[in-house]
């Protein structure tokens, strides 16, 4: 079975983000980029499925990124993925979620797959759209928000996270599955994994190589436009409740929480 995990390079969650005012795009050169934390769960799940199957299944990591995307790919390879592909072409610049999903789907057709695993979302754009859009482009089933994944007999079964419980959903392979945070505990890359990662193949794919049409990627292929941006308002200073007796103070806090509809 060929498992492909789609991953994204995102700015470090703790880093201060700066936008370029002419392009309205995030300035990615000035900050440290990391592997999208949600994707680590998808990689771990893919490795667990592969190890559990023990049948020569492979895990390929796929991303769309500039050349600097190699850094986050290296982490996935060090965790144990077998190989990787990077969609890297200036033509992809400015792609929104739909254009990105088209390009990734083209790449997936090019490299082949039985099961596609993805995190539910990225920590930067948080569109949560890629898994479903991929499935649509590829004409395969889409199973989202999995908190457990089982593959057997050419079928994938998941426990889909829903409020108050889970739904059991199955689909024949090939399929796209998005996994939730907390489905597993992503492993640390081992020393052997890190040292071995440099020997693994990273295929760089251009738009032409995957047959992506120019009008469907980049700015031209995007349905959305970023019109502007602003820094999040600074958090207001907290209110300090001073009360002579604790009961009075507690009542003031409870009243406040009720007013805010917290309780």
């Amino acid at each position: 079975m060929k498992i492909v995990v789609t991953v994204k390079q995102v700015p470090d969650t703790n880093a201060e983000k700066v936008f370029d005012s002419t392009t309205n795009r995030l300035n990615r050169t000035s900050i440290e980029n990391v592997l999208n934390p949600f994707d680590e769960y998808a990689i771990e799940e893919a490795l667990k499925i592969k190890e559990g199957a023990g049948d020569g299944s492979t895990v390929t990591v796929l991303t769309m990124a500039p050349e600097s995307g190699r850094e986050v790919i290296r982490k996935a390879l060090a965790m144990g993925a077998d190989d990787a592909a990077i969609l890297s072409d200036p033509a992809f610049q400015g792609s929104d979620a739909m254009a990105t999903s088209y390009a990734l789907a083209q790449a997936l057709k090019h490299i082949g797959f039985d099961l596609i695993l993805a995190g539910t979302q990225s920590t930067d754009a948080i569109c949560c759209a890629i898994p479903a859009a991929l499935a649509e482009h590829l004409g395969v089933s889409c199973l989202t928000y999995a908190r457990k994944v089982t593959v057997a007999g050419g079928e994938v079964e998941i426990q889909r996270d829903i409020e108050g419980g889970y739904a059991r959903v199955t689909a024949p392979l090939p399929a796209v599955v998005s996994v939730v945070k907390g489905i597993n505990e992503p492993r640390y890359p081992s020393l052997k994994g890190i040292m071995g990662a440099k020997k693994k193949s990273i295929e760089v794919l251009s738009a032409a190589a995957v047959g992506a049409e120019a009008g469907r990627v980049g700015d031209a292929g995007s349905f959305t436009r970023v019109q502007g941006w602003a820094a999040a308002p600074a958090r207001e200073k907290g209110r300090v409740i001073k009360a002579a007796d604790p009961g009075e103070g507690a009542k003031a806090i409870v009243d406040f929480l009720i007013a805010k509809k917290v309780i």
Binding site: E71, R74, K75, A78, Y188, P189, I194, A197, K198
Partner: peptide, 15 residues
Amino acid sequence: TAEQLDVVSMCREFA
């Protein structure tokens, strides 16, 4: 090297 940087970041994360 890339490997040395990766070992540093793994050790930092683990520690």
